[in-house]
Amino acid sequence: MGSDATSASKPLRPAIESLLRFVNEDLLADSKKKVECDTPLFDEGWIDSLKILRLIAFLEVAAGKKIPDALIVMDRFRTIETIAKNFLNQ
């Protein structure tokens, strides 16, 4: 089941595409696991305590502003789509 963002008929918006590429090709470079826009990111433990910091750093650069620790919660970080919606205005 794909979401709108993963649908073949719709091109991915650039910010989501860039985030998806970062997660799959950088964060998960050492893993066989690859995610899609609607894959739960934190259910299986692929993202460890260092990777979450790299993810936040990537988002802060992409968004051009700091992300307060209080906003780093599951409701805002569940999937690539959720993150993009909350932090990249997508």
Partner: peptide, 13 residues
């Protein structure tokens, strides 16, 4: 890894 551990614990509830 202080901040990373804390944030991971927070985001993963």
């Amino acid at each position: 890894e202080t901040r990373g551990k804390r944030l991971l614990q927070q985001v993963r509830e």
